[in-house]
Design a protein around this nucleic acid. Structure first.
Lengths: 199, 199
DNA sequence: TTCAATTTTGACTATATGCTCTATTTTATA
DNA sequence: TATAAAATAGAGCATATAGTCAAAATTGAA
């Protein structure tokens, strides 16, 4: 049964912006945080780097966020959520893989955050790790169902094993794209899909 | 033509240890740096974390290394080098992939450093990025030659494309192993090899 | 056993960091 | 246009950080 990702740990860490400028400032701060997280990771980001890039002073930052971690966690959550497309319950594997390719290419700063979290924060930060694991779980479930819709003869276990391989490889392709912007992400994911479908 | 990785930027940053205790201390510091780099990445590591874990005070550290970065760079270089096995010039693809699996499982702290560098430091640190790129280049070369020894009918381009896909997927498998220690690295790399060989 | 070279310690420095607080400016509404 | 709420700047605080240095302890060769 497909479960939806529900944000159960909604922090009260983020203060509400009421005026338009405040909302814009909040978005600039999150954008700066997003970029920086992709560059230096959860453990390397500093407040000064965030505020400098967002073009605000510390006071403005703390008018909108309780702590540095609140902004970081907001962006990390966003990245973990954004990698999964909205669900109709009947997507094909192609749809899901397309969505992945789109995420990596069209939302590359979020994709970088996602990959950073995959290699780093899953071991250092408990709430980030839990959220990441939940998303991972959900994604495997969804891919597995899509694969079995295509190939009903596959056992649950075999389908899941193939999907885990597929998703792991896709993450590797995402990193390859970071390293070399010329990496043929679409072509390689297509080939990987063929392997996944092969009986 | 296979080129060997030669350390052309040998830094004079590391001071020589003369006595046995000094050499042991140096190794403890590098071990601590290795573990921490795998956990928090190049941008997140601190001197205090290194010295605390190594069980030394700042003065001892600076007796052996000129800067924090010197120790970091030493470990990063080591990790980038260690992923490639010594060459006889006639390894099979299986040999190379086995070596990769071994690196990931038997030298996991270095493997973590390697993956950290792959997603992070390639964009922030010029000397690390260059060294990483060189290793990447070399690895692709080596894998491609091995593949063409097996399948001589493959064009250079096709072989290279398959190898790039293979290596990218392996990195993804490495991350999957970090996230879930139960991930079947050996089995999945074997399947990935089959795809790589398929005509 | 002596002793010069090496290693270690830990106090110290300067700067960076996360965050607070108040005064000032800006915004939206009536 | 007056006004209360919201946003901003930036000085200031406590702690963390990278790195220095001189004195004390340890090492190993003669």
């Amino acid at each position: 049964m497909t479960e939806f990702i529900v944000d159960t740990t909604q922090h009260t860490d983020n203060r509400m912006a009421r005026y338009k400028v405040g909302i814009e400032t909040r978005e600039r701060i999150l954008e700066a945080t997003r970029t920086l997280l992709g560059e230096v990771g959860v453990e390397g980001i500093t407040l000064k780097a965030i505020t400098d890039r967002a073009g605000v002073r510390a006071g403005s930052f703390y008018n909108l966020f309780d702590t540095k971690e609140a902004a970081v966690f907001t962006v990390v959550r966003e990245a973990i959520t954004a990698i999964d497309p909205g669900s109709e319950g009947t997507e094909t594997l192609d749809d899901l893989v397309d969505a992945y390719v789109n995420f990596m290419t069209k939302q590359s700063s979020m994709a970088q955050v996602y990959l950073q979290v995959a290699v780093t924060a899953t071991r250092n930060n408990d709430s980030i790790r839990k959220r990441f694991a939940k998303g991972q779980q959900y994604r495997i479930e969804r891919f597995t169902e899509a694969l079995r819709r295509e190939l009903p003869q596959l056992s649950e276990e075999e389908a899941r094993a193939r999907v885990e391989r597929l998703i792991a490889a896709l993450n590797g392709f995402g990193i390859a794209l970071l390293i070399d912007p010329g990496f043929d992400l679409a072509g390689n994911t297509k080939r990987m899909l063929e392997l996944t479908r092969q009986t």
